[in-house]
């Protein structure tokens, strides 16, 4: 039942992913201490330290936009489930239609048209990740609503409010968390993609995607490898974490 469930391989992977992510976040946080305490200028620094410095921007943005996207998607799914059959069908049709579009292109497009800004970027990334979260969360909620133990609770004469409080919410917590966690790797990928094109996080904030893009333009293989590698590790970690929560 817990994250470190020994009998489930997925649980073990989620724990490993959590450890990797925690290590990555810690390394990014203490990276300024590694840069000799002097003024941090990324292009002078050791490429690994520079990539770790970039990680602060990428990871914190992914967290911000991912949480926003998760909240939006979960709100969408819960509203759809609560509003009755017709609204539910309309809202989830919309989510599934949006899911088929390459929404990730929206991020550099909005940044290019409206000219950058962390707020705008976070909003578009959240909007781009929300439909996937909504679709998954809604599927989980629907499956939960059909479970037999809810019928058993009704047979015990419990009121709908009590069933919601005592059975529905405790059972929905984990699948909804897992659906929400799906937004984190998506947000990181969307931001990195936009930054790669030079339309992502604004200049003072470093980002892995931006560094990869810059190094590729300069043809500097040594500078390209660390951010690309860290980005890959972070994406794997976030995906494995979300998967592990789903079990």
């Amino acid at each position: 039942m817990t994250l470190g469930d020994p009998d489930s391989r997925n649980g073990g992977r989620a724990a490993a992913a959590m450890a990797v992510l925690a290590g990555l976040a810690l390394a990014c946080t203490v990276a300024p201490l590694m840069a000799d305490g002097s003024v941090i200028r990324r292009h002078d620094a050791d490429p690994v330290v520079a990539a770790l410095l970039d990680g602060r921007g990428s990871l914190s943005f992914a967290l911000l936009a991912g949480l926003l996207g998760a909240a939006l998607g979960l709100g969408w799914a819960i509203a759809a489930s609560a509003l009755g059959q017709r609204a539910e069908r309309r809202m989830m049709d919309a989510a599934n239609r949006l899911l088929a579009l390459p929404l990730i292109l929206l991020v550099p497009l909005a940044a290019g048209l409206a000219g950058g800004g962390v707020g705008l970027l976070a909003a578009t990334v959240a909007a781009a990740t929300a439909p996937a979260v909504a679709a998954l969360a809604h599927a989980e909620l629907r499956a939960l609503m059909r479970r037999e133990f809810l019928t058993a609770a009704r047979a015990a004469g419990l009121s709908e409010g009590t069933i919601l409080r005592r059975h529905l919410i405790p059972n929905a917590r984990r699948p909804l968390l897992a659906a929400g966690a799906l937004a984190l790797p998506r947000a990181l990928a969307a931001e990195s993609f936009a930054s790669l094109l030079g339309l992502g996080l604004p200049a003072p904030v470093g980002s892995w995607g931006g560094s990869v893009g810059l190094a590729a333009r300069l043809g500097d293989g040594l500078a390209l490898a660390p951010p690309a590698l860290l980005l890959a590790v972070a994406l794997w970690g976030l995906c494995a974490f979300a998967e592990g929560l789903r079990r």
Partner: peptide
């Protein structure tokens, strides 16, 4: 009262 066809599924897994 009612007896369900799949008794395991009729119990709340988190209680």
């Amino acid at each position: 009262q009612i007896l369900f066809p799949d008794p395991a599924a009729s119990l709340d897994p988190v209680q």
